[in-house]
Every structure is written in C-alpha cells, then in structure tokens.
Design a protein around this nucleic acid. Structure first.
Lengths: 344, 344
DNA sequence: CTTTAGCACTCTACGGTTAAGAGTGCTAAA
DNA sequence: TTTAGCACTCTTAACCGTAGAGTGCTAAAG
C-alpha cells in the first residue's frame, strides 16, 4: 500500500530507525553519513531526509534537531527493511538458562515465569494471558462429596485443565442420585467448549433434570456461577518497572497512566485479545492500537497453543522506539517454548 | 522511653504534624500561630520549635524553611497525640458501598477486592497476604482417579481451604490400594497444621507405607512437592499507582525502587510477616522497618482470622507523611470485615 | 542533473545571575 | 516570659546569553 521508496531512501530510513532505536536521540545527517557507509555526503543525506519527512516517514522534534522515525517510518521499517533474523546467540543463552532452571508443573507458574523471562530479556513489559479455559472442550465432570453439606465439583477439559469449586448442598443427595446427575451432565456436555456452555443450555439441562430430581436447585446455581466465574482470565505481567528505564517515560504522568493500565486486568485482557492473531505474531505500532493510553507504544503479540488449540496470548509492550527485530525473535522463541511445554 | 513534652510543645508538635500531613510543605511558625489557636505569637512558637528540633522531633530541610516532623516526631504523634477515633462517616460510606456490591464466593476474590478497597479509600498502596494455608490444620485428604494414569489429590483443611493437584500415577493402583493409602494418610496427618507436615514426616510415612505398597513412589513425590509449593503465598496489591500521587515520590528513581519491590512477592511476604502482630495493628515508621527500601515509608499492618485462627496479614504502605489516624481506623474496619466475612 | 561544500540561521540545553518570598534567629523592649 | 522588629539565609523561578548541533539554501563542482 505504501509507495515503495528507492533503495537510497530505504538505506537512510533504516539508518535513522536503527540509530534512533539504539540511542533514543534524534539522528542528524552527519551521523548517518559517518556511521552507515552510505557513501554520500551529509548534504545529500540531508536532502533525502527532507524528502522522507515530506513523505511522512520521519519527523523533526524541532527545526534544528535531527530526525526521528514517525509511526509510518517504523511501520515501513518493520514491513520492508528489518531483517527478520533468528534469535541472537546471547539472547538464546539467557533464555535457555532461565528456562532450564524451572521444574514447574503448575500451568500458572509456567506462565508467570515466562512473563518474567520475556520481560527481562527484552527489557520491556510483558503481558501473558493465562490459559483460556473457555476455549477448551468439556471433558468430564465429577462431584466429590466432602461431608454432609458440601461437595467438590471438579471440571476437567480436553486440554487438561482441572477446575474445582466447593458447593453447598442444602438437601442431601444419595450416592446414587448424585451419580445419576453427574453421568447425565457428562453425557450432555461432552465435547462442548466451555464457551458453548451458556446459561440457556444450563437452564435447559436443569429443566430436564428436574423431572427426575427436584433437589438440585442449589447445586445447579452454583455450578452455573462457577462456570461464569471461570471465564474471567488472569493476565500475568512481567517487568512493569522496565518502562521506567525508557527515556520516553520520564514524565511521571505517563508513568501513572501506564501503571494504571497495568492494574486493570480486564482491560489488558481485552487489548491482548483484540490485537492477537491465532497464526502469527502481530505488531501494532502507536496509533494502530485501539486503546488510547498505549498509542505511543508498540504492542507485539503472539499466541500459544495446547494440542494445536489456541489457548492464550502473550504480548510485549514498550515505546514505539523498540528493538523490533530482537523482540519479535524472542517472542517467537517463547511461543515455541510454551507450545512445547504445555503440550507435554 | 521518650521524655514527655509539656503541653505547649505537644500542641505545637501536633500542629506541625497535622499540617504537614495535609500540605506536604514545611510548616512555619506563622502558620502554626495562624491556623491552630495556640494563643501565642509566632516568635514564641519559633522558640518552641527550635527546642523541638533540638529534641529530635522536628527537622528543617534547610535554614530558612519551616519544620517538618522527623520520624521520632511521627512516632511521638502516633503514640501520644493522635486521637485514635473511629472511622469517619464518609469513609464508612465509601467502604460499605464498595463491599455491598460484592457477591464473591472465592476467597481469593474477597482478598483481592479488599486490597482494592483499602487502597482506594486510603490513597495508599495496600498489600494483603493471601490466606496462609500452612497455618491451617490438616483435615482430610482424598485421591480422585481421573483416568488410567492420572489422579486428583484433594486436600482439605479445618479452615475450609481446598487445594488440589493433578498427579501422574505411573503404576496403576487398584481402588482398594488407593483407599488403603488414603485412609492411612488421613489417620496420620489429621489435626496437624500444614506447617508441621515436614519433609521428614513425609519420608517417615513413606517408609511405613512402602512396607505395604511399593508402588507409590511417584504419587508420593508429587504429594510432597505439592505441599511444598503451597507454602508459597500470594500477596495481593492494590493501588500501586497511588504512590505516584505522593509528592515524596516525584523522583523516578524512588518510584523504580518501590515498583521493583512490588514485583517481588516473596519479599513482600517476608516484610508483612515480620511486621505484623497477631493481636494488634502495628505501625512501623521509617527506619523502624527492617527492609532498606521502605525506610522512608510507613507500613501499617493488621491481621485477619478465620475461626479465631490468624491466617493472613493486611498492610498499607505509604510515605511517612501519612494520615495515621485515618489509615488506622480504615485498617481496623477492614480487619473486622474480613474476620466476619471469612468465618461465615 | 546530481552531488557537495559552505554558510547563515534556528532552536535547545545549560550555566550563571537576579529578584522575590518565606522563614529563621537574635535582640531588645514590653 | 513573651513579643515585635529586623537582618540574614536559603530556595525557587525567571531571565538572560552562549555554545553546540543540525538544518536549509545557495552556488559551485562533477
């Protein structure tokens, strides 16, 4: 869609982006001439940079400063100029070092740890959406009587999640009655994703069951509630303090807005879900993001799967001035890791 | 221990503390004379303030500024000058409004919500230690076979916690064998607190059981691990961004140190545990805190119970310049709330 | 026609100076 | 013992002026 630039302009744009990513300082024509063997004088580069500014790829903070990439500039860089490249050896070393230590079994811990790794390698803030229970398929339901009044509902999905919840049972059920209810439910719900277990479906089942047993009111309400609650998903954060190291966040007010965002789990969830794409790593630069408070940031997301079923999203959030190539390769690496780790 | 001040000095000290808490500006003698009907001229107050400074209760940021309370000054204020007072009507209204909405059943949600309330009413950062599983007593253990290879271990405590964990069972166990193991364990462990279930005790049990069944290796290792893991407790945070509103945290470096602290859950846990006292609200001002990074802060803690068993701690962390009277009363209110809520 | 050297111009960042304001300590009088 | 008065101190904000970086434009060179 964007008009293609000639090679020289591309070279210069790349030089500006790369240098600005590294130094966070506006890049002048002299710097480009010196550091990137373009074989041109600063004056020529100046002219080209003026063109690039007119085309919208560069901006000038003020008349006598160097140029910095605009959001379009970053976009062009990511789409056309960046060498995708594999993860660097150094990063790989750090990551595998981190991951080798972990003997975690609980899925939450794995996710949490991944958030930590992701943020400390990229020096950005990482967000990882916990496994989305609702996308799993119903596999099995058990009710385990605890004592006279209480029971434990255990719900097992095809992806291996186990959710449980204590319920009060006002009226006592005999073992046989309980068994009857449970096997009926299992039969009806088997294979549905949790998403598909709607309130209306539950109501229907309730009507059916009431014909046979009229004592389950309590238990049912609670089962319903429990399913509803489970749809709320945790978002794990790593390296929230990393934004403080970025010069673009020297303003306390910006920091506040970001941290505020980090406290709002449902919002983070929404942002991650909207941005992510099942099959690919997505890069949202600046105003490409829906949510206003991150329109000076770039969000990079990827998804992870359990047994080929997409189950969650990971994201890295930082200023638009971000080492795209590196972050993307690290992201790719972590997605692979999670896919392998969780499917075993 | 501290020498008692005469009434006039107390009045002036109180005035300085109160005013400084409100304005965050050094308080001059004129201000004290004007706003707090001491019936003395600024000159007299100046002399008294010079005395108070010599005694260590006030400090001067620089020669020509007003005074601000030293940490000793705050301590004296909290111990002797502050009217303890009940929670204000406004605060009570806000709190009960928040709490009336909640229909939460899960303990984690209750805690999390409490953290939110606490922080938004006090405008400080709140920390709440999740229920301390390890202080509960062992009540009942169940193993629920899921399929050929896996089982669900369910652990129930006297305080009503339910913890569960999936285990892989390499060798198959018959129902009878399983039952035997489980009832043996229940018998041996009943009534012990989780704290008391040490590795050595588990090893002992293991030896005992191996005489009868030699197939439990796997299951046992996993049970042991699961108990160990459960000793790690979550700390819920609320209002971490509130510190940004405090003028004492205008320095980005201080902000970073605090946020860094907030990311280290085990450390928060340690701080809360060290500070808290089962029977009372504890106020730790500045250097009274062990941990270096909060020695410019005040930490106020209280504990909550389930069935008269202390099970967790809540804390409020803010700059030493904090509305002590208000925070303490709010803290007291929330402790009461949690005690009632969780014991039902 | 493209590239380059040169130069005047613009804007920021920084250091130093100044003036206003707040509050003190001291002295002497009430 | 208290208070009025005053000189003194220190901070803060505003206001220069200058150095430095980088530009845009022009004119010459390739």
């Amino acid at each position: 869609m964007a008009p293609t630039l000639n090679e020289r302009k591309e070279q210069i744009l790349r030089a500006v982006v790369v240098n600005y990513i590294k130094t966070a300082e506006p890049v002048g024509s002299r710097t480009v001439a010196r550091l990137y063997k373009v074989g041109l004088s600063s004056a020529t580069i100046r002219n080209e940079m003026a063109d690039l500014e007119e085309l919208g790829y560069l901006v000038q903070p003020h008349t006598s400063a160097g140029r910095i990439p605009s959001q379009c500039g970053y976009r062009y860089y990511v789409d056309n100029l960046m060498e995708p490249g594999d993860i660097s050896d150094d990063d790989e070393k750090v990551i595998s070092n981190y991951l080798s230590f972990e003997k975690m079994r609980e899925i939450e811990q794995i996710i949490n740890n991944s958030a930590r790794v992701l943020s400390s390698v990229t020096n950005q803030t990482s967000l990882i959406m916990g496994p989305q229970f609702k996308k799993s398929a119903f596999h099995q339901l058990r009710i385990l009587p605890l004592d006279e009044k209480r029971g434990l509902v255990v719900l097992i999905t095809d992806t291996g999640f186990i959710k449980n919840k204590v319920i009060d049972m006002q009226q006592q059920l005999t073992q046989a009655e309980l068994h009857q209810v449970v096997s009926y439910l299992n039969q009806k719900l088997y294979g549905l994703t949790i998403d598909q277990v709607t309130t209306s479906l539950i109501n229907e089942l309730k009507r059916d069951l009431f014909k046979r047993l009229e004592i389950l009111e309590q238990a049912f309400i609670l089962l319903e509630e429990s399913l509803k609650e489970e749809k709320q998903i945790r978002v794990f954060l790593g390296g929230t303090t990393n934004i403080l190291n970025q010069p673009e966040f020297k303003d306390v007010d910006k920091i506040r807005r970001m941290l505020n965002l980090f406290e709002q789990e449902p919002l983070l969830f929404k942002i991650l879900e909207e941005t992510s794409n099942e099959n690919d790593i997505v890069v949202r630069i600046g105003a490409e993001n829906e949510y206003e408070d991150i329109q000076e940031c770039t969000l990079i997301t990827g998804t992870y799967k359990i047994h080929d079923k997409t189950i969650g999203t990971l994201g890295i959030l930082g200023p638009t001035r971000m080492d795209y190539s590196r972050v993307i390769s690290v992201m790719r690496r972590m997605v692979d890791y999670l896919n392998n780790r969780l499917s075993s």
